[in-house]
Amino acid sequence: MNQRIEPYRIESEPYYRPVSDEVSLFEAAYARRIPLLLKGPTGCGKTRFVEYMAWRLRKPLVTIACNEDLTASDLVGRYLLDAAGTVWHDGPLTVAVRYGAICYLDEVVEARADTTVVIHPLADDRRMLPIDRLGELLHAHADFELVMSYNPGYQTALKDLKVSTKQRFGALDFQYASFDIETEIVGREAGVDADLASKLVGIAQRSRDLRGRGLDEGISTRMLVRAGALIADGVEPHAACRMALTRPVSDDEDVLDALDGFVDAFFGP
């Protein structure tokens, strides 16, 4: 194995609790090298799922956090000056394509439009990456797989994937887990007992009912794990919930009053 890709290997098993048939469906897609689009709210486990599948399949994972400043050159590569002069440096997408990794574009719609143009020939039967600066047409390694995620709840007509992009991918829907499963996840990840974990999940589920009524997104599983960990470390529950759950999701006083009321309902006023 080329040493360029070794740092991207996941050596220990990430904790992931399956909620449906997503593991077997990912494996089936990978066997056919069908690129995948993971759709779901923030903090529901999409990234952890990809990490778990990379470990399970024993494949390197190159993760790219997309943002509005991400360009095609950031993905593909560029010439840089070093001690040897002007030298070409592969970008993370090129590394994954060249050496056979799973490439995960996290929140892909946050990236600039020219980045999706780059992935089109990788996401269909051609499985090729044009590197114009090198005059190279790079054929993807047999083990290469492309995975992208995005949150449909945040998208507008001006900030969404084109139909021509979506149709190149299979798609898996992610939602927050059921009460029992989310309680299990929070307890395991935060190191707290089931009673405390269930109270945190109860707060989150009530907050999700406010989506579209003052909140863009409710409290996520990721946030619950942080709050639980703080409480496990000795932070008073109300203070932990304010810092990790309620204040990050809203600045609106009425919404915060409602969220604080949920906390009081489970932990007492």
Rank of each mutant, 00 (worst) to 15 (best):
D69V: 02
D252P: 00
D90I: 03
L256D: 07
P35W: 08
M243V: 12
K59A: 10
G135N: 12
P41K: 02
K159N: 14
S149D: 08
I10A: 10
P152L: 03
H139F: 05
D173Q: 12
Y8H: 11
V97Y: 00
Y176C: 04
T221V: 13
P7T: 10
A204Q: 07
V118S: 09
P18Q: 03
Y99A: 04
D193M: 04
D233Q: 15
G45Q: 11
I185F: 07
R168S: 11
P18S: 00
P92K: 13
R33I: 01
Y176L: 08
V263K: 09
T165K: 02
V255W: 00
A111Y: 04
I64Y: 07
Y16Q: 12
F169H: 12
I64D: 05
H120Y: 11
V62I: 14
L122G: 04
A244H: 15
D251N: 13
L81Y: 13
G170V: 09
G77Y: 10
A194F: 09
S220N: 06
T86Y: 07
R56W: 02
D254F: 11
V23F: 07
D264W: 11
H139M: 02
Q205R: 13
R48G: 08
E136W: 04
G170N: 12
A65V: 03
L230F: 12
G85C: 02
F144C: 03
D173P: 05
T156K: 04
Q205V: 02
V95L: 13
Q205C: 10
Q3A: 13
V23W: 03
M1C: 01
F49E: 00
